[in-house]
Design a protein around this nucleic acid. Structure first.
Lengths: 130, 130
DNA sequence: CTGTATTCCTATTTGTACAGTAGGATAACT
DNA sequence: AGTTATCCTACTGTACAAATAGGAATACAG
């Protein structure tokens, strides 16, 4: 999440190196490699190898929802993965709760875009200027 | 959760033994002991020791929300525990997302009561009669 | 065409929260 | 007194995300 927000923040047309993201977000570069690999395979970013390489968002920030990103990087967003093989009388009632929760969660994350987050970041910075 | 639902289902005025709950819900009795201990300390159930002992709901099922129960048995319901000590510029934006998620989750679980779950259980049983 | 910077790939380790196990102490009913 | 159940606390197992590690592949720059 912080990775994509960082790419959105530095979305100037020039590729962004993971080393720089790692430094800014205080996350290990090696760990970022694994996250971005998922985002790359999902087609969310464009990668450029070699010197002056790095990553860029493929689309403008308003086209990425938090849900899209989290589903790639964290798998399903359900608090409990509902396993149909185990669907029996006993779990029917709890399954209904998990479904409602999943809907509520998706409803939140699918309505927040990277652009929203950029704006929040702006607000926060303005706070300090006062 | 299944434990409280079981107590609600067999809420006849007679105490319910953990051994029976364990058999019905296919959960180890020893594990149930630890869960019910939390619910007991929270004042949700009444315990009766010795032969013919067991547990009973202290209040009628409509007075227990899923949220109340889960908060006792699973701690905070937030997907990420927001640590004020780590609250810095970097995490401000993500914290805002977690807050929205937490609100959405609470809104779901605080509006489902054990009574609702009992009714769902009924519906499910009726399904098979047709 | 060679050196270097960067992404790319895969295997391993670590941390941690939840689930489950274990053994015995305490209380109360018959 | 003996049995049945709760009560208490410590330990073990497990699954998953977070993090680490080492090196292969690619492409730019000189």
């Amino acid at each position: 999440m912080l990775l994509m927000l960082d790419l959105a923040t530095y979305n100037t047309g020039e590729p962004v190196r993971l080393r720089d993201v790692a430094k800014r977000q205080q996350i290990s570069e090696k760990y970022l490699e694994q996250i971005i690999s998922l985002l790359n395979k999902a087609g969310f970013v464009r990668s450029i190898r070699g010197p002056q390489g790095g990553y860029m968002l493929k689309n403008p920030p308003e086209q990425y929802t938090v849900g899209m990103i989290l589903r790639q990087t964290e798998g399903s967003l359900a608090p409990v993965v509902y396993d149909d093989a185990n669907s029996n009388e006993r779990e029917f009632v709890t399954a209904r709760i998990w479904t409602q929760l999943e809907e509520a969660i998706n409803n939140v994350v699918d309505h927040i875009t990277l652009k929203d987050m950029l704006e929040w970041q702006e607000e926060q910075i303005n706070q300090y200027i006062i």
